[in-house]
Computed example of a mutant assay.
Amino acid sequence: MPETMIPASPKTDTAPPRSALWGRALTVFAWLSFLSETIIIGTGGAVRLTGSGLGCSDWPLCTPESLVPVFEVQGIHGLIEFGNRLMTGVVGIIALVVVLLVLRRYSGKRGLVRALWFAVGGIVGAVLTYFLVTLVSRLSGAEEAPLAFPFATGVLLLAIIAAAVHSVRTTAARRDLVTLAWIVLAGVVAQALVGGITVLTGLNPFIVGFHYASSLLLVCVTAAFLVRLKTAPGPRERAVPTWFAIVTHLTGLVLAMTILFGVLTTGSGPHSGDADVLRHGFDATVLAHVHSWPGYILAGLVLFLTIAAWVLRLEPRRWLLVLVLAILVQVGVGVWQAREGLPPVLVGIHMVLAALSAATYTVVVLRLRRPVPAED
C-alpha cells in the first residue's frame, strides 16, 4: 500500500509584528517616565526636608573641586543632594527614550535620524558655548566661569525646542504624542537648569517653589501622555454636559490656587532646605489657613462632580472617584501635619500627593471628551 503523503502545514509565525513591539516598549517607558517624574518630587522633597539643599555647594559639580560629594566634608547632606541630581539624569534618559520611541513609531527612520542630527548639533553647540564663556571669563581676569554651564544648558535646550518644532511639523500621525514627549524632555533639561540656579542663588525660596511647581506640571504631562497613548486618534467630541465641563475647569482653577498657596506656605515654613537660608518673610501661620480655604473648596467641588458623574453615568466617573479619594487623603494629611508641627515625613507625603492629585485631575479633564465614532 503506497504511503499517503500529507503536505506539511506552513509554519505559523507567532512573533508579534515589529510595530507592536515598538508600541509595547513605548508603553513601558511612558509608565517609567511618569513614575520617575513622581519619584523625583519625593527625592527633591527629601533634599529640602532634611536640610540638604546646599549639600552640594556648587553646580554642575558638587564642589568646585569634585563632581561627587566628599563624605568627610559634606556628610549625609551631600549624598542626599547628589542622589537627587543622579535621579535627574535617570529622568532625562527615560524622557529621551520616550522621544526616540515615539519618533521611530510615528515618524519613521527619517524623523528619528533628523532628531538625532538636532541632538548632535545641540551637544556641539553646548560644548562650544561652554568653552567660549569660560575663555571670556578667563580673559576678563576671573578664575572661575560660573555662567559657563548654564549658558551651555540653555543652548542645548534651544536645540531641543528646535528639534521638537521640526518633528511636530513633519510628523503626519499622532502629533499629540510627539508634542507631549518633546515637552517632557525639554522640561527635564529646563528643570536641571532651574535646579542649578536654585543652588547658585543659595536656595531662593521663590525659585525653589517654581522648581517644585514645574516638576508637578511634568507629572501631569506624563499622565496626559499615558492617556493619549491609549486613546484612538482623530476628532473628538464632548462626552459630558456643558455645565459639568465648566465646573470641572473651575475645579482645576481652585486646585491650582491650592497648590500655589501650598508652595508659598512651605516657602515660609521651617523646611528651607538649609539652616541658614532666609524664607519669604510671610507669616506661615496665616498662609497655612489661607492654603486650607481653597483646599476645602476643592474637596467639595470634587465630591460634587463625583456624585454627579456617577448619577449621570458620565465618562470620567471612575477617575473622579480616584480624585476625590486622593483629595480627602490630602486634606487629612494636611490637617495632621499642621497639628503635629510639620514633621518632614508628612510634609513630603503631602508634596507627592499634591502631584498625584494634579495628575489625576489631568486624566479627568482628558476624559471630558471622547473620539468621534467612525460612522460619524
Rank of each mutant, 00 (worst) to 15 (best):
I160P: 00
T4D: 08
G92W: 03
S215N: 06
P150V: 03
W59Q: 06
R104Q: 15
W117A: 12
P64G: 01
T38C: 09
Y130R: 05
L217T: 13
H271K: 12
G55I: 04
F149E: 01
R175P: 09
V168S: 02
W243Q: 14
L342D: 02
V28F: 13
V290H: 08
A119P: 14
A172N: 04
T266Q: 08
P64W: 02
G348N: 06
T14Y: 02
I183H: 13
A25S: 09
A239D: 13
R238E: 15
G267C: 04
A354C: 13
C56Q: 03
V155D: 01
W182G: 08
D276I: 10
W319F: 04
T231H: 06
C56V: 07
E315T: 14
A163V: 02
I93R: 06
E143R: 01
G154F: 00
L86C: 09
G83Q: 08
L185E: 10
T362E: 08
A358G: 15
W319S: 08
T242P: 08
R110M: 12
R318I: 04
G332L: 01
W293P: 11
T27F: 14
Q330L: 14
A126V: 08
F210W: 07
T43Y: 01
G252T: 00
N204W: 05
G267Q: 12
P373F: 01
L54T: 11
R174G: 05
A224E: 11
P344L: 01
G42W: 06
G348W: 00
V124L: 15
G141K: 02
Y106T: 15
S9R: 14
Y106W: 15
G267I: 10
A162Q: 05
A164Y: 04
R370S: 11
V70D: 00
L305Q: 11
L250Q: 09
W319Q: 07
L101Y: 15
L177N: 08
L54M: 15
I94Y: 12
L26A: 07
S66H: 09
V120C: 14
H77V: 01
G53M: 09
I76A: 09
C62W: 05
V286F: 11
R279I: 13
F149D: 00
A354E: 15
V124C: 15
F151D: 03
L132S: 09
T50A: 06
V254K: 01
L185V: 10
L320E: 05
L278I: 12
V333H: 14
A95N: 10
V120P: 13
I6C: 01
H249V: 10
H166T: 03
A25C: 09
S140K: 07
R279N: 12
P69F: 04
L320S: 01
E81C: 07
P344S: 04
P16V: 00
G42Y: 02
L128T: 13
H271V: 13
G125A: 06
F304Y: 15
V331A: 15
L157H: 00
V120W: 11
G273I: 10
L325K: 03
T222E: 12
T258I: 01
G55P: 14
G83K: 12
L132E: 05
T50F: 07
T170E: 06
V102L: 13
A355S: 13
V189W: 10
A172D: 04
V286Q: 12
P2I: 02
V136G: 03
I183D: 08
L253K: 00
L135P: 01
T198G: 09
I246Q: 11
E144C: 02
R104V: 14
G125I: 08
H271I: 12
L250C: 07
C220A: 10
L116N: 11
V254A: 04
R48P: 09
L132K: 02
